[in-house]
Amino acid sequence: MKRLLMSCAVCILFLTACGSTADTAVVNTEGSTSMADIIAVLQESFHTEDTSITVNFSGTGSGAGIESVLTGTCDIGLSSRPVRPAELQRGAAVHIIALDGIALIVNLSNPVTDLTIPQIASVFTGQITNWKTLGGPDAPIAVYGREAGSGTRTAFEELIGAADNCLYTNEYGSTGDVTGNVSTNPNAIGYASLASVNDTVSILKVNGIACTERTIQNGAYSLQRPFIMVTNQNTVLSKPSQAFLDYALSQEAAPYLSLAGAIPP
């Protein structure tokens, strides 16, 4: 019986203690999965400087991240698309920590290397359905994209001028998922944040310009977007969160950002 009562007591303790929301050395960040690598590397390098603070990351989506910080369910929101006017009005404060290219990726076995924006738009809206039209082999095109709500999808569709008009063969729940599935399917084309693309897929040139750090920084590569940390102007940022934000924006963090594939602004 003692054990039974003890466990009951522990549960009650747990449940009652849940109500308190005192300042602990935990920073909860939430938002774009495209920023997962960046946050992971910042998290780790920041932890070596200040071991008392734990940074958590929940990969949800840009919209969800911004909404969460505005409603107070996380400390810092992460967005990989520009913050909308309505969100700014509700008190979202924007801190651009890096730039990112949206890389157009195909399977390593695919001979196609370069597409123009109109070609990309035709592929993603379903007007071109065979690789032969694009100078590739005679094979159907499998168009891979992200699910509704993803910042990468919103940004990509707006950049190629096909917002809400894309016809996908498959939709995936995260950036790595698109990369992974493109790497195993010779027919596939997809888009993913340059920061999280590895050498298992090949990256296409867009309008003849390769997706690299330099072309993104000087604006020549057109499929690009900012990586943003969003805070809430209406509430005071907790000390650990402020420290983490300052760190992410500092010069010290820049080499780590490049390490994760992002481009310092």
Binding site: C18, N56, S174, G176, D177
Partner: peptide, 24 residues
């Protein structure tokens, strides 16, 4: 206790999902 209550992370199955799907 406070940190235990605020801890948030992936268990093995969730980590499997993260590795397979989010990071390929």
């Amino acid at each position: 206790i406070e940190n235990i209550m605020k801890a948030s992370g992936a268990t093995l199955t969730a980590a499997l999902y993260v590795y397979a799907k989010e990071r390929a």
